[in-house]
Amino acid sequence: MEKKKKRSIVRGIILGVLLAAIVYTVYTTATKDKIKILQEGSQAPDFELVDLNGETHRLSDYKGKGVFLNFWGTWCPPCEREMPAMDRQYKVFKDQGVEMLAVNIAQSDFEVQSFISNLGVDFPVVIDKTRSVQKAYNVGAALPATVLVTPEGKVKKIITGEMTEADIAGFLESIKPE
């Protein structure tokens, strides 16, 4: 009996390991395209970019403040539509410890500058010339994409697609420091 029991355990372990390998394979393949290097709850990758006024913004400098990161491009109509709402909410929340940073994906200074001054928005706009921040945050071709960073520097939420003003207000509220 002893021997039989041992054999059953060995078989169970072998089958279990093989099952785990299959499950892992199927799971990783299924989520391969959608995989987020960046996950909600994980540390937001630090970065440093220069805004249109020549000022450097480094994410880690905003520790203790919530950061609303919005990735956008001038060719993206929903990005354009949500920006005025973002600007209004930025003015409400900037004195409550929440920063807003719009990250343009690798366009020229002139295009970004003229686009922003036509819209007349005031939040800081940085340009990710080499797309390294886009890569670090795993932002694909689908814009806009918004990442909410908590005062502790953790990713609170990743939003792809257009947001309403109420959405934006809610998101900013959710990353307000205590």
């Binding site: 089958l15 093989l18 099952l19 390998a21 299959i22 394979t25 199927v26 393949t29 299924a30």
Partner: peptide
């Protein structure tokens, strides 16, 4: 998923 399961079962 089903193709990978078949190959996985073949491995087992």
């Amino acid at each position: 998923w089903w193709f990978q399961i078949i190959v996985g079962m073949l491995g087992v």
